[in-house]
Computed example of a mutant assay.
Amino acid sequence: MTASPPGPATPAPLFEQAAIAGVGLIGGSVALGLRQRLLARRVTGYDADVQVLQEAQALGVVDDVRATPGEWLRACDLVVLAAPMRALAPLARDLAPFLSPTALVTDVGSVKAGIAAELEALGVRNFVPGHPMAGSERGGVTHARAALLENAVWVLTPTDHTPLTALSRVRTLVEHLGAAPVVMPPDAHDGLVATVSHLPYLASLALTHLVARDERLSLLAAGGFRDLTRVASGDPRMSRDMVVENRAALRNALARFRRQLERLEADLDQPEELLAAAQEGKRTRDSLPVVKRSLLPPKHDLVVAVPDQPNQIGAVTQALGAAGVNIKDIEVLAIREEGGAIRLGLESVEDVRRASEILNAAGFEVRGRG
């Protein structure tokens, strides 16, 4: 009897063992991205909250969990620090003694200068500060999803001591997670996010406080007010820590904002000037990448590992076509020497399930997201 040919080999991942330290919304989303896009062979979730770890494992966000730092960290070639701002530096101090000297380390904090200095003081050589510009007012691992990072700007803020090889590797990771890396100094980042992230939070607080002091206003608050104050629904403690950590840059942003409000107040007596300001505001707002992205329909994706051999993509599409599974979109996510992965956009959750069964039977490794 002739033996059947072996199935396609799974390509080597970017990382053998990844640790996500802090398995919340962003940390969980990074973990899911690593797993769904086949970028790490194994993903460990670390968190001091045992209930969070149980939820993360039950949801399939991570492969295994740890509640205390230890020797297990030495096997990790990627470590992502994903704790809230106030906990980020203590987390780094707890983990640093156990890190492999060759481990690639990054973080997802929204303020960069402080954590960059902290990791340098700890002697963590391969640290690349980072900040994915993505999030939601709904926190926690239960709301984590790999799609949260797709098309998001992910700022990398190397210091003078950041090895270029480490920066290149984190940049590659960010691209493979579907985000767009942007490189700038830590201080420049902190000044910019003070305006586009931390200032809107304080503005939303101010608006909600106006409503809180007059119950008649709450009866009239409609969609526009809801959209302007959405970020006030975030975790109060985490948001407080974020803006306090960046208070110097935020004070500068507040001063500029006051001047803009004063200019608009003066324009109330000059209708043409106010119209020009409104037109400029509309043009600017409509051109924002995040606004355009929000118009995209939800996707039902399947990520398939493919070896770097001829006709592998053809084998995938032919197998699904023969079974009547309609592929609406296809994207090459990553091709490394050993192979890579492709994303298939399908019509429904059921198509994701059927395609998974078909391709698993053909020997392909797949990860689905309905």
Rank of each mutant, 00 (worst) to 15 (best):
T2P: 00
S4R: 12
P5W: 08
P8G: 06
A18G: 06
G22T: 00
G22E: 02
L32F: 05
L34F: 00
Q36A: 13
V43T: 11
V50A: 15
Q57A: 13
D64Q: 10
V65A: 14
V65L: 08
R66L: 09
A67E: 11
G70M: 09
W72S: 09
C76R: 10
L78M: 02
L81N: 09
P84W: 06
R86F: 11
L88W: 11
A89T: 15
A103L: 05
D107E: 07
A116N: 02
A117P: 08
L119Q: 09
L122P: 14
F127M: 02
V128I: 00
G130C: 01
M133D: 00
G139I: 01
G139C: 05
G140I: 01
H143I: 06
H143P: 11
R145Y: 05
R145M: 11
R145F: 05
A146C: 05
E150D: 03
N151H: 15
W154K: 05
T159Y: 11
D160Y: 07
T162D: 00
P163G: 12
T165H: 12
S168H: 15
R169P: 09
V170R: 08
E175C: 10
L192C: 13
L192T: 14
S197L: 12
L199A: 06
Y201S: 05
Y201N: 07
L202P: 08
A203L: 15
S204V: 11
A206F: 14
A206E: 13
L207T: 02
H209N: 10
A212F: 11
E215K: 13
R216C: 09
R216M: 12
S218D: 14
L220E: 10
F225S: 07
F225P: 00
D227L: 07
T229H: 03
R230D: 02
D235Q: 06
S239W: 01
A248L: 10
E265W: 10
E265M: 06
D267A: 07
E273A: 05
A276C: 06
A276T: 06
A277G: 02
K282H: 10
T284K: 04
T284R: 08
S287E: 02
L288Y: 01
V290W: 08
P298S: 08
V303E: 04
P307G: 11
Q309Y: 10
P310G: 09
N311H: 15
A323S: 10
V325F: 14
V325M: 11
N326F: 14
D329W: 08
I330H: 04
E331Y: 12
A334I: 10
R336H: 08
E338M: 09
S348Y: 13
D351C: 00
E357Q: 14
A362I: 07
E365C: 08
